[in-house]
Amino acid sequence: MRHILIVGATSAIAEATARRFAQEGDRLYLVARNPERLAAVASDLETRGATQVETMVLDANDTTKHSELITQAETTMGGLDTILVAHGTLSDQKACESSFDETLKELQTNCLSLISLLTHVANRFEEQKHGTIVVISSVAGDRGRQSNYVYGTAKAAVSTFLQGLRNRLYRSGVTVITIKPGFVDTPMTASFRKGKLWVSPEKISEGISRAIQRKSDVVYLPWFWKFIMVVIRLIPENFFKKMKL
């Protein structure tokens, strides 16, 4: 039985993944901003078989509470061995272009708040010499594009941070997993036209479970994004800059 902290527990990917944890009978500590939605998710996971479900209403941007949050999770569950970080917003690129404040807000939510959390968790896991850190990054961080480079910047920083963390924590037996989903049909992307490349959060959660089991490092979900992103990264910059992406 695992003791799992989930930040951004009402996000579609986190919820789908948490259902898998619940079916395995894990203990769960859920964090999200909206109390009603958090309560609905918690009762669902409890009914589906989680051994214990605890919740905390918290805005992940409130970084002063992170240390306390991790202590709370550890105490109420009697341990902490896995964290899934899934909170985030899909930045409004146009708004960010005309306002640095907007950009800063996006970087705060999608990058700095994660780095704060991970700093605390990394130290605890390093000390206890075991643990699994799973973070939802994005393929958007693999190359800057005009349509969403602020979001991409945040995710690129997260991915790079995780790379370093993985390297540092390897000796302590801590697993660090970077999840890079492609297009996922969630409330966050409700306004998008959905083509063949879109998949459900359930599909992504299946990949996340597998990645945890295999102690993977960087996982593209679904798998074909690995190849798409290899091609996209290979395009020379002086050509890439002329493309409308």
């Binding site: 609905a40 998710v41 009762s43 669902d44 009914t47 589906r48 409330p187």
Partner: peptide
Amino acid sequence: RGLDRFLSFDHSTGILRCE
């Protein structure tokens, strides 16, 4: 279909509440 949560299940009475 997005409202697909179980809200409670009483194992002894068999009353299920779900979305």
